[in-house]
């Protein structure tokens, strides 16, 4: 394997704690804030952040949802492979709330663009912020930047940043791999 480890589980734990603290700094008791993990991979990350807020910082009433953006993507019919949807679970009102989108890797910004459209189907948020674990700089197609980021990486387009979440957190890892050649 020519995969290069960017972050190991220890570093990821430190980053998650920092991101949780930054969220508390800006959102207090989270009474007007909702966390939305973006399907498919942002949802694992969002669950991690939510559990740290709950267990380590005793924030009660964390509202956590999952948003699928498949039907809002701008590359429908433009990809070789069809897009299959994931589930959306938003069991609370978004109207007037501060929404924090949570995703693992920010690359072109197109997913976030789709998510900004998708979230409006659930109401008009007071504001929307973006939290990502990895910010791939210099690869943006749209003027979208994260409000909170775990780490910044510079990789070439042919490489993929993969975030691996494990059940016990001990094998969490972020690594760079080459795109699969067909």
């Amino acid at each position: 394997m020519s995969d290069k480890i960017l972050l190991n589980s220890k570093k990821i734990q430190i980053i998650l704690q920092r991101l949780a603290c930054q969220l508390i700094e800006n959102h207090g008791d989270f009474s007007n804030t909702v966390l939305i993990g973006l399907q498919p991979r942002g949802t694992y990350f969002a669950e991690r952040i939510a559990s740290i807020l709950r267990d380590d910082y005793h924030v009660k009433n964390i509202k956590l949802g999952k948003l699928d953006i498949t039907f809002y993507r701008d590359d429908f019919r433009r990809r070789d492979e069809p897009l299959n949807a994931n589930s959306t679970e938003i069991n609370f009102l978004v109207e007037g709330q501060k929404v924090v989108f949570i995703d693992d890797v920010l690359f072109s910004g197109r997913s976030i663009n789709a998510a900004l459209t998708a979230i409006q189907s659930y109401g008009r948020p007071a504001e929307v912020e973006l939290l990502v674990l990895i910010d791939r700089r210099f690869s943006r197609h749209l003027p979208i930047q994260p409000d909170y980021k775990g780490a910044t990486v510079d990789v070439i387009n042919e490489e993929v940043v993969v975030v691996n979440w494990s059940n016990d957190t001990l094998s969490d890892a972020v690594y760079i791999t080459n795109k699969k050649k067909k």
Binding site: D68, F71, Y72, R73, T88, T117, Q120, S121, G123
Partner: peptide, 16 residues
């Protein structure tokens, strides 16, 4: 299943 969830949202439309 996913579209059933969509048509039960306050805004029942997707731009696909």
């Amino acid at each position: 299943d996913h579209f059933k969830e969509v048509i039960n949202r306050p805004i029942k439309k997707v731009p696909s």
